[in-house]
Simulated assay, not measured.
Amino acid sequence: MISEIANRIFNQVIADYHKFDDIDYTVKNPYDAETLEHLFYVKNWIDTAQWHMEDVVRNPQIDAAEGLSWKRRIDAQNQVRTDMVEFIDGYFLNLYKNIKAMPDAKINTESPAWALDRLSILALKIYHMKEEAERETATPEHREQCLAKLNVLLAQRDDLSQSIDELIADIEAGKKYMKVYKQMKMYNDPSLNPVLYNKS
């Protein structure tokens, strides 16, 4: 099952990242470059690094110039994240290019890779909520609240995993077909963001 592979690798990446806890650490992807596992590893590393960038920029004592620098870095990282999702969708499009869709086949509300993107972020939420549920310096009330939230996240992961596997099965059976739209993010494009093109 795709979701089982994804969840296993996302958890592995998060554990690998926290061995060093360094946004700029050079990634050592253990999977062959041609595999889906390799792509999942890269995907979650991008998300994990961005998660920690978001933590840094929310420090209320951060210097304004440094905060702006981090915000711009987060924007750039978000573009990398989007590009990676679209690359993974390209993998799936190529994988299923010879499958003939049934006449009554339907399109899904999101592509496989965007669903997997949500699963990747969910893995990060689960990891950090579990940390909070077990944090000894937190109050019992805080830990209890976080444990309740953790249980919701775990249930959400089960449901999302099942939905992803069902989507993949439907695509393989021709019951659904893939149609991928580029996200066309405008804020990073100097020709589309009026604040940028009016400066030139």
Rank of each mutant, 00 (worst) to 15 (best):
M1A: 12
I2N: 02
S3W: 06
A6L: 09
N7H: 12
F10M: 10
F10L: 06
I14A: 05
D16K: 08
Y17T: 01
F20A: 13
F20E: 13
D21E: 10
D24C: 07
Y25A: 14
V27N: 09
Y31Q: 09
Y31N: 04
Y31T: 08
Y31E: 02
D32E: 14
D32A: 13
A33Y: 06
L36R: 04
L36A: 09
F40P: 02
Y41C: 06
V42I: 14
K43R: 12
N44P: 05
A49P: 00
R58F: 05
P60Q: 07
A64M: 09
G67M: 05
L68G: 14
R72E: 15
Q77E: 08
N78S: 10
Q79W: 01
V80W: 01
R81I: 10
R81E: 12
T82K: 06
M84C: 12
E86S: 04
F87P: 03
D89S: 02
Y91R: 00
Y91A: 04
L93G: 00
Y96E: 02
N98G: 07
N98A: 04
A101R: 05
D104Q: 11
D104C: 02
I107Y: 02
E110K: 11
A113V: 00
D117M: 07
D117T: 03
S120P: 01
L122S: 04
A123C: 11
K125A: 10
I126E: 05
H128D: 08
M129G: 03
K130R: 15
E134F: 07
E134D: 14
E136V: 13
E136S: 11
T137D: 14
T137P: 00
E144W: 04
C146Y: 09
L147C: 11
K149E: 15
K149A: 15
V152I: 14
V152L: 14
R157E: 15
D158N: 12
D158K: 12
D159V: 11
S163E: 12
I168K: 00
I168W: 01
I171C: 01
K175T: 00
Y177N: 01
K179V: 04
V180S: 07
M186A: 14
M186S: 13
Y187W: 13
D189A: 05
D189Q: 05
P190L: 00
S191W: 08
S191A: 13
N193Q: 05
N193I: 06
V195G: 00
V195L: 12
Y197T: 04
S200K: 15
